[in-house]
Nucleic acid binder design. Structure first.
Lengths: 108, 108
DNA sequence: AACAGTACCTGGTGCCACTGAGTACTAAGG
DNA sequence: CCTTAGTACTCAGTGGCACCAGGTACTGTT
């Protein structure tokens, strides 16, 4: 599927929040996870910008740990603000998908 | 629901395409339709920029007709390229929603 | 030494929804 | 008669986000 970028605005960040929320993990692994989920064209640069933004916005707790396979990893976990933001994301997602589905079914 | 703007990137244009595709209509009415569908904060300026973009991209056929209630209306109808773009939009939407739902269900 | 895999960072770009202000026409109310 | 509200369209500018392209750096294999 090509050129999803515009439709991913806002949702990709939510996906990253969800991934972090389900398990403490790091940028490189998050990228691999998104790729295997079907977001095949998402590259590391994109994920890192999201992670830096999450950190800047105080939604995650960051822990640096050494890796046996390369440079140290930065592990991310949601804090309270992050969990709240994740809940808000899913509420928005629910809201938008329900409206779009209504529109698609020709609902009036 | 507040601040959906980032998540509407790409999808709002698709919604407008769908509305036009189901019935030849004009900007002001499209705005009202979106509002009643639940996109309450979408204002005319936003819709008109989308309509001008659709026209510029050759996806719609435009017909100006007088109105009894104000200035003349610009009616929009999809052409072949527009119908194709609409189909692409729904394919992308399907694709993304299925991946997000999988993620939400903790799918691996 | 060279390379591939792992792991992270960053300045710049383009697209899109949104803002805010403006134009213009009609009908109703004070 | 003039103001207001409703209808209807336009457009220059803003900000946020995914993306691009290139960089750094560590480890293990060839």
């Amino acid at each position: 599927m090509d050129n999803l970028t515009e439709m991913l605005k806002g949702t990709l960040e939510g996906c990253v929040l969800e991934i972090i929320g389900s398990e403490e993990t790091y940028g490189y692994a998050i990228t691999r996870r998104l790729n295997e989920l079907g977001f095949a064209d998402v590259v590391e640069g994109t994920v890192y910008t999201i992670l830096l933004r999450l950190e800047k916005n105080g939604l995650v707790q960051v822990t640096k740990r050494p890796s046996e396979q390369g440079p140290p990893r930065k592990f991310y976990a949601l804090n309270d603000a992050g969990r709240k933001e994740l809940a808000t994301f899913w509420a928005k997602w629910e809201y938008i998908t329900s409206r779009i589905d209504k529109l698609k079914e020709g609902g009036r």
